[in-house]
């Protein structure tokens, strides 16, 4: 039992953001390739999808207490973190290989069947990567803000909406070769997903406030009217959800780009809020809050004197 309350930090939150967005970007690219005729999204999107996941994995390694032994996280197939690490590695490889099909210099660029198979693999692995952080958090029984299946829906929705936003931006930078009208519908799909995200958060908070335990209600109040309220209401809900919902529906590329950027900001805020607000709360044992409130934080004179020995 630590004197301080130990928990995950910002690097894991950023990893969840990058992994979710990157995984869902591959899902969208794969689905477009498989089900939209000759549809192909911008190669930049599939490349960035893989790159985002790789960046997230890198941050996750730095978050470890012993980063040089990070290979050990692949060792327990029963642990959801191990499953996530394996699937993310495979998705990164699939995304990078898929990107090569957009360049004629690679001899396999016209191997249609292989490309379609990789697209299927990308959809499956990308979907798992986009979903597993929510499952990971939802299984933690002692964490009242996270516990339950709701977190999975929130993470999956956020992953998809940020991925669509990233696809919109990627398509503006490097135009897709063959996707045609479909890319034009991405802003509308993004708006629908933002509306779903808004609805999910309202219902999630409602369920938690009136939920199974007092600890869940306390955890939800921390977001609604506690120390994280401003970030939640104005950051996630207003700037990250409602405002981009309006902007992406305006038929101007400039507004749509701005809306897409705000969606990414909202996705980032969501991960930070969920990790910090959820990590700060546990279902406390009798007398534990009072006990912890009396423990030193490390900046007291006697602690400094002790640590400087």
């Amino acid at each position: 039992m630590s004197q301080k309350h130990e928990g995950w930090g910002w690097m894991l939150a950023v990893d969840f953001f990058f992994a979710g967005m990157g995984g869902a970007m591959l899902v969208i690219a794969g689905i477009a390739d498989l089900f939209v005729g000759e549809g192909r999204t911008s190669w930049l999107a599939s490349f960035l999808g893989a790159a985002f996941m790789a960046m997230g994995s890198g941050l996750l390694i730095f978050e470890l207490g012993r980063p040089f032994q990070s290979w050990r996280v692949f060792m327990n197939p029963k642990a959801i973190l191990t499953v996530g690490a394996w699937v993310m590695s495979l998705a990164i490889c699939a995304g990078l290989v898929y990107t090569t099909f957009s360049f004629a210099i690679f001899p396999w660029s016209d191997w249609l069947i292989v490309r379609k198979l990789i697209a299927i693999f990308m959809v499956v692995t990308g979907l798992i990567v986009a979903t597993y952080p929510g499952v990971l958090l939802g299984r933690l029984k002692g964490r009242p803000l996270w516990v339950g299946p709701g977190m999975t829906s929130l993470f999956l929705t956020s992953s998809l909406v940020t991925a669509f936003a990233a696809h919109i931006l990627s398509g503006m930078i490097v135009a897709p070769a063959t996707i045609g009208d479909v890319l034009g519908r991405f802003p509308a799909i993004t708006a629908v997903l933002l509306a779903v995200q808004l609805l999910l958060w309202v219902s999630y908070m409602w369920v938690k406030i009136s939920g199974a335990t007092e600890a869940e209600a306390v955890a939800a109040r921390r977001l609604l009217c506690g120390e994280y309220a401003a970030s939640f209401k104005y950051g996630l809900m207003l700037v990250g959800t409602v405002l981009p919902l309006v902007l992406v529906l305006v038929s101007s590329p400039l507004y749509q780009a701005l809306g897409a950027v705000l969606v990414l900001v909202g996705g980032f805020i969501l991960r930070m809020l969920v990790i910090y607000a959820g990590g700060a709360d546990r279902t406390w044992l009798p007398g534990e809050p009072k006990y912890r409130s009396r423990l030193p934080h490390g900046d007291e004179a006697f602690m400094k004197a002790w640590n400087s020995k």
Binding site: S2, E6, G65, G142, R143
Partner: peptide
């Protein structure tokens, strides 16, 4: 020797019984 300090167990334990050793990096 197998612990990498990922804190997955710290977050999973409902009793707050696990703690990271900041000197070794392990839980």
């Amino acid at each position: 020797k197998k612990c990498v300090g990922c804190l997955a167990c710290v977050m999973a334990c409902p009793y707050g019984a696990r703690v990271k050793n900041h000197e070794s990096g392990a839980v």
